[in-house]
């Protein structure tokens, strides 16, 4: 089961990201993961938040441009080589990762990677075969 990612357009201006995070903070939205992609002139922030509906409503009211994208949260062993093994599995199965970043949360000896995948059915079956766990919203305590 996938989770929702919010992407926000950032124009190249000092303080824009600070404004957005402040808005979310004021509404008590918890940011669980964030990653920034940028060109010379603009960028975008990709975020996983605890309440994506609330966050997107706030940001839209603020006049931001958003897009909601389904992404996957995958469990990775939290030890040297954990990520490498996961990526090797995907590479062997010819599953492309468009981008990824890590969730802030840890549990026991596991970390979690957020992934955007183009061939989702193949991704799911590959991870299923290797018994690699895809996290659900409930397991991550996301609304």
């Amino acid at each position: 089961m996938n989770i929702h990612q919010i992407s926000v357009f950032l124009e190249n201006r000092t303080g824009q990201l600070a404004e957005i995070t402040k808005l979310l903070a004021e509404s008590n939205v918890d940011i669980r993961a964030i990653s920034i992609a940028e060109t010379a002139d603009y960028g975008l922030a990709r975020m996983i938040v605890d309440d994506s509906h609330k966050a997107s409503t706030i940001l839209l009211q603020h006049g931001d441009i958003l897009s909601m994208t389904p992404v996957w949260a995958v469990e990775v062993p939290d030890r040297p080589g954990g990520l490498s093994e996961l990526l090797a599995v995907l590479a062997d199965a010819h599953v492309d990762v468009e981008y990824m970043y890590s969730l802030f949360a840890h549990k026991d000896d596991h970390a979690y990677m957020v992934m955007r995948i183009s061939d989702e059915p193949k991704f799911i079956s590959t991870l299923g075969d290797r018994q690699i766990k895809i996290m659900t919203k409930a397991e991550l305590d996301l609304k």
Binding site: A37, R46, S67
Partner: peptide, 15 residues
């Protein structure tokens, strides 16, 4: 001005 319909989570698409 960026238009909501042209925005995406992929920088490649925007570029």
């Amino acid at each position: 001005e960026m238009n909501p319909e042209l925005f995406s989570d992929s920088l490649a698409k925007i570029t």
